[in-house]
Design a binder for these strands. Sequence first.
RNA 1: CGGGGUGUAGCGCAGCCAGGUUAGCGCGCGUGCUUUGGGAGCACGAGGCCGCCGGUUCGAAUCCGGCCACCCCGACCA
Length: 568
Amino acid sequence: MKFTHATVPTLKEKPAEAEVASHELLLRAGMMRPLAAGIYTLLPLGALALARIEDVVRDEMNAAGACELILPTLQPSDAWEESGRWSAYGPEMMRLADRQGRDFCLAPTAEEVITLTVARIAPSYRDLPLNLYQIQTKFRDETRPRFGLLRGREFRMKDAYSFHADAADLDETYARMYEAYSAMARRCSLEVKVVEAATGLIGGDISHEFMVVSGIGEDVLVFCDSCDYGANAELESHRPSRAIGSPGGAAPEEVHTPDMTTIQDVAAFIGVTPEAVIKCVMYVADGEAVAAFVPGYREVSEPKLAAALRTDDFHPLREDERELFGGLTPGFTGPVGLRGVRVLYDSELAGGQGMVCGANRLDYHLRGVDEGRDFAAEPLADIAAAVAGDLCPRCEGSLGMARGIEIGHIFKLGLKYSEPLKAHFTDADGVSRPMVMGTYGIGTSRILQTVVEQHRDEKGICWPTAVAPLPVELIVLDPGNGSQAEAAARITGGLAERSVQVLTDERSLSPGIKFNDADLVGLPVQVVLGKKLVDGMVDLKIRHTGERRDVAAGDAVGGVIRALEEAP
RNA sequence: CGGGGUGUAGCGCAGCCAGGUUAGCGCGCGUGCUUUGGGAGCACGAGGCCGCCGGUUCGAAUCCGGCCACCCCGACCA
């Protein structure tokens, strides 16, 4: 493939829109171009890299016994109405109407459609299990698209759906998908951590996310330093390592705390640590006032709060909603004597003694408050976020935090779709039962950018061989030189016989430009044809190490093959 | 959704505050010559609804209003 034919519009300068390295490099290396927010054209090299990644995914799915199919991307609302997600998915779904005014969406995922399809073609337990997947473009009208392909509104994803006669059979496939996903990441040279995750809009009981640890990740992860426990912060569980409260004993006493609305201020003023203060965060959930209490050194976890409240429709109290709390003031609200609002206490508050909290009176706090005696922490719920140093829920290790890029997510769905969409089968006893389902997604375009994020240096991308758009770039320094052209043809032909594709840069440009473009594009092995060819030598460069070798022109093909075998 | 920022040639930017010649610079692009092992030199040249609509003015890239697009931050921690 010629460099010019591949249209590789490299950029010398960083495009203004690129905030993260991988985004910048994909643009500068001429692999993609933006069309609108979160929507990109993949140019030939980008399309090739995506194809390599999707080949890996396809290969592992097939090896795990799944079969590929193609589902419609344009889907009628009916299916989504039946599952209840037409409304539940909200504004994130791209919706449109046809000329008759019938509602459709551009599919963000495909549980409904696959379930309806399988319901009609697999009536018997003899037809199960099934594991069907597709690799397709998906659409989600993200609140805030960003970081190039990492959070796009149009993106590529492999989505698989499995159907089983019982939960044990689902467990088996789930485990196989877990292994397949690990293998895909490995083959893409991505190091993943698997964490327990919330099931969100997809639903179901159990799910695991495949995360690439990265400072630019949008998810916060919690890990144990001694066992394999790992969880997304949105549902982690932890055991506190610090004690709350303070030495006390006496009855509650009001303290004048003018203008002290932060935990820090109040704790310092009264002479206790934040561990002794009860933090009250005020929310409005489904139009009702909710006071969430957590230890002063922690923050409320809104994803956990949503789970505890059983609603997503809540937000922190706004100025104009104060009357819902009977005029109580943020900063001075506490559990003692609080009435007329819904309350939730973080479990850690149970049994706290000698606590400090808002007095429900402007500019006053209470100290010497004991849970049980002065107020009852009911109901208890896990609504606080973890802090580094908390203890593991499973062992004696302690928890640390990291950020991660979610590349894959697998779910045990159970009956969430098969019941409403009536995906029933007849079991061996002649009884009709809903199928037990699983769903497994992996973002291939997101992997594309994640690979770049994890494999690069100051000069450009360093593609791992397995997913490089092409394995070799051949740089012909003087394309007008007959012997160089001849050698280029011979080497390209020799490599083609071994199924090694070559990107040939035979542009009439100065060498520096071609060298720099080659490093920017980052194919694993570079072959340079230049002056040394007179002495029968060519240069070979290993991109990821920068190592250069002189190789006899006659052995160039062998040299490249050897170099590719060594490259990661 | 809330807040902030930016829209001027393919890319990166200046010009705008203090309105007034043919709207500039670097890179890129075209032609010619010279160059050719890490982003070459000279010469000539092409390329702009100054995001869109409206207003103010003798005159608007510049001032005012509205809209659109893109980017960033935040989504309230008391």
